[in-house]
């Protein structure tokens, strides 16, 4: 898989079009790594000159900040900003809404000013420009897809349509869950909940959301966030529905539509 780092670009005197911010989940989580690879396949297929920071990338600090640890957040943020400003980064694309939100909204006042794009918007623009050609229509024929709104994409940054437009490209029927868009129910991972046990209650949040997803009768649950993806995958498994319902990222689905990826439904 062809992936160049910013350091490699810099040493060859070239400038990439965009920095792909992979994020911690995309780098280390096995499920999210697949999403990273699907997205890179699309970028490479379209000959988009992108770079990653590789070992120079650190966590954006989002879970620490939301948990209340501003120290750890700012330490990481200032390091990341130093790296990116040294390379002269102008545009960033990321597959993680948490990275997207914090890079876009909270880095500027610390000295990190970039054009930050979530991959849903990035892919939607490529579609609008006519650069994405759907070749595989068989995979999605007669299937229903339901899109789960990520809080950090939706309410936090009012991106509701871009991921849906990406999914509309596929030859499948897009159905909505009971709560969607501004009323979308959280998957339960945000605010650093991903990294700790739930407080006691009657149900886990990801189960509540999974129930809504199953009620939609879709065979595919589309996510645009690695944490939502994990939460919903776990939810589907705990409902023992993993044979009938699959959770995918919009990048994986679009890569499959372009014949760059095979997915098993």
């Amino acid at each position: 898989m062809q992936v160049k780092t910013y350091a490699e670009y810099a040493s060859s005197g070239e400038t990439p079009e965009v920095l792909f911010w992979v994020g911690c989940a995309g780098s280390f989580d096995q499920r999210a790594q697949k999403v990273t690879r699907s997205f890179v396949k699309i970028l490479n297929h379209l000959n988009i000159k992108f770079a990653v920071l590789g070992t120079e990338e650190s966590c954006t600090g989002d879970p620490a900040k939301r948990a209340g640890n501003e120290f750890v957040f700012q330490m990481l943020a200032l390091q990341n900003i130093e790296v990116m400003n040294t390379y002269g980064v102008k545009r960033i694309v990321t597959t993680c809404p948490h990275c997207f939100n914090i890079l876009k909204n909270e880095y500027p006042s610390l000295g990190g000013n970039y054009e930050v794009i979530h991959h849903s918007t990035f892919l939607q623009k490529l579609i609008d420009e006519g650069r994405i050609k759907i070749t595989d229509t068989a995979t999605f024929k007669g299937k229903k897809i339901t899109y789960h709104d990520s809080c950090y994409l939706g309410r936090a940054n009012e991106i509701y349509e871009a991921p849906r437009k990406v999914l509309e490209e596929l030859d499948a029927e897009l159905v909505e869950m009971k709560s969607c868009r501004t009323k979308g129910l959280c998957c339960g991972a945000g605010g650093a909940q991903m990294f700790k046990e739930d407080e006691k209650g009657t149900k886990r949040i990801n189960i509540a959301r999974t129930e809504e997803a199953l009620e939609s009768n879709a065979q595919i649950v589309a996510a645009a966030c690695p944490f939502c993806n994990t939460m919903l995958t776990d939810g589907v498994k705990s409902k023992d529905k993993q044979q009938d319902v699959k959770v995918f990222d919009i990048a994986e689905l679009l890569a499959a539509g372009q014949g760059l990826e095979t997915i098993n439904l």
Binding site: C24, R37, E57, S58, P63
Partner: peptide
């Protein structure tokens, strides 16, 4: 540099 205990040197292993 990550919320999990992975080495930063392994950050590109996904490829």
């Amino acid at each position: 540099g990550a919320p999990w205990q992975f080495s930063q040197q392994d950050r590109l292993n996904w490829k």
